[in-house]
Design a protein around this nucleic acid. Structure first.
Length: 173
DNA sequence: CGCCAGATTGACT
DNA sequence: GTCAATCTGGCGG
C-alpha cells in the first residue's frame, strides 16, 4: 500500500479498495475487516460531495492522497480516503466492511465507524502513515458490481458505487 | 446567530 | 411509516 494507490481517479481507487483488508488496532488488539462496499466522490462538480461547499471538508479533500477525512452527518461519522493529486478535492467513501476476526455489524457507513471506534480524531491523518489504522493487500478474486450511490439526493448521472458481488455484508436497500 | 439540510441509523407509533 | 440525534456549512436577519 503506497501513495501511488490513491493517486488515481476516485472511481478507480474505489474499485481497487474492494477486497483490501482494513486493520484497526485498539489497545493492542488488531481488528481486521475486508472492504466490501465503497463510493466515489468528485469535486465541486459533484452536487453530493462536500467539496461543493467551501469549508474545512473541501480543504481536506484537497490534501495529499491517502488523507483520512471523517465527516459527521445525522449522528454518524463517515470515513473517506482522499484520492488524486493535491488540490483535486476527490475522495472515496467506505460504506461497508466484512469483519474477519471480530463480530460487529459493519453493514453501513455509520455502523462501521462505530464498530472500529473511528471518529474525528482520525480527521486529516494519513492512512499510509498511521499506527492505529492501516490497509493491507489481498489478492482474492471476486466480481465487482457497479451501481448508483445510496442515500444521495442529487446524484450524478454516473454509477459511482462499487461492491463485491454476493457479499452478505454489503449495506442493504 | 438561528435555522435548515444532508454521504444515517434505530426506536417507536 | 415517522422522528430524532450530532456535526458542518450555507443562507437569511
Amino acid at each position: 500500500m503506497d501513495k501511488e494507490f490513491f493517486l488515481k481517479n476516485p472511481e478507480i481507487v474505489a474499485k481497487e479498495l474492494l477486497g483490501k483488508i482494513l486493520v484497526r488496532e485498539i489497545n493492542g488488539k488488531k481488528l481486521k475487516s475486508k472492504i466490501v462496499e465503497t463510493e466515489a466522490y468528485y469535486d465541486e462538480k459533484d452536487p453530493a460531495s462536500r467539496a461543493c461547499q467551501n469549508g474545512d471538508l473541501k480543504k481536506t479533500m484537497e490534501m495529499d492522497a491517502g488523507t483520512i477525512l471523517v465527516y459527521g452527518v445525522h449522528n454518524n461519522w463517515l470515513i473517506n480516503f482522499v484520492t488524486g493529486e493535491k488540490g483535486k478535492a476527490e475522495a472515496v467513501l467506505i460504506r461497508a466492511l466484512e469483519p474477519l476476526n471480530f463480530n460487529v455489524n459493519c453493514k453501513g457507513p455509520g455502523l462501521l465507524t462505530k464498530a472500529l471506534e473511528i471518529n474525528k480524531k482520525f480527521h486529516k491523518l494519513n492512512i499510509l502513515s498511521n499506527k492505529d489504522m492501516w490497509i493491507e493487500e489481498n489478492k482474492e478474486i471476486f466480481d465487482i458490481v457497479k451501481d448508483f450511490r445510496i442515500g444521495v439526493k442529487k446524484d450524478l448521472n454516473k454509477k459511482l458505487r462499487f461492491y463485491i458481488k454476493n457479499n452478505l455484508n454489503v449495506s442493504k436497500k
